[in-house]
Design a protein around this nucleic acid. Structure first.
Length: 278
DNA sequence: CAAACTCCCTGTTAGC
DNA sequence: TGCTAACAGGGAGTTT
């Protein structure tokens, strides 16, 4: 399941084949994946557009497009969320389509950008203002301007377990189930830690752990663990999906519990449950 | 604000 | 061996 490191890997791999290319045709075989505008407008507005830049915001891919329409420069952003099982490929148009190719963008160089998504959870937007879609996201964890002080300030007025907070995209962007578990293991914090009780040191440690974990994920082009639906890179998870196997730090068997309806993996020795105050 | 639950989907897997 | 049902997962939205 693509999270920040996987999405970053995808966007990096697409820059070279897409920048400067023009979209000549569009087809979509599962209409629920298109959030807005209508199918007709989507097609009409994309035709003759060129890719001018590609960015990532959280787990969203942002494709900045431009075209000249009646001598006016039109700017739009194509936004894709891969959700659980999505992936993007650039293939020669002559190459056979794959089983779950849902959206096809025909390019002016004989290639196609193909949005493949087994589970149809992926979402596509075409909007004048990207902020309308990604405006509510929390800070980018790897933004150079992001600091442990800013991170600590995010906790003001927050209560409840730590892990669901890390999964909340309006708290911090880009972290999903895998990197939440991996970051908490690295920070030696239990997923159920009451977030309002985090001290300055623990907060700084978590901040560092999140950044290091995500950076490592990107370095290895993402992980291939999880349900194996979409294999990305070769990042090896320390705890995620490794219930019963030894903790890489202390060899204690990794535990699998459920936190906020999500499968959660941790080392019971490295990440002890904080004692509840009486 | 938090937590629980629903919905959208299909491939995998556990259970019979 | 073959079938069915449960399950996993991100995130928006709704209800408690």
């Amino acid at each position: 399941m693509p999270e920040l490191p996987e999405v970053e890997t995808v966007i990096r791999s697409l820059r070279s084949p897409l920048l400067g290319r023009r979209i000549d045709d569009v087809s979509l075989s599962w209409k629920n994946m298109l959030v807005r505008p209508s199918m007709q407008e989507f097609r009409e507005e994309l035709l003759s557009s060129r890719f001018v830049s590609l960015d990532r915001r959280g787990k969203y891919l942002l494709f900045r497009l431009e075209r000249k329409s009646r001598n006016r420069l039109e700017r739009k952003t194509l936004i894709i969320h891969l959700k659980m099982s999505g992936n993007l490929n650039v293939r020669l148009a002559s190459l056979e389509r794959e089983r779950h190719d849902r959206v096809i963008f025909a390019l002016d160089d004989g290639n196609e950008l193909r949005f493949n998504d087994t589970r149809k959870f992926g979402r596509v937007f075409l909007v004048p203002e990207a902020e309308d879609v990604v405006g509510k996201l929390g800070p980018e964890p790897l933004d150079p301007g992001f600091s442990k002080e800013i991170f600590r300030a995010l906790f003001a007025g927050r209560r409840g377990a730590l892990k669901p907070l890390l999964l909340n995209q309006s708290f911090i962007a880009g972290i999903g189930n895998i990197y939440a578990d991996e970051s908490l293991w690295r920070a030696k914090l239990h997923p159920k830690t009451e977030c309002s009780k985090l001290g300055e040191k623990e907060c700084a440690g978590l901040f560092k752990a999140i950044r290091e974990t995500l950076a490592l994920g990107i370095k290895y082009c993402g992980t291939d663990s999880g349900d194996g639906v979409v294999p990305y890179g070769s990042y090896r998870t320390k705890v995620y999906g490794r219930g019963g196997k030894p903790c890489p730090r202390c060899r204690t068997p990794i535990e699998r519990i459920v936190v906020a309806q999500r499968g959660t993996h941790l080392c019971p020795a490295c990440q002890p449950q904080p004692r509840l105050r009486r």
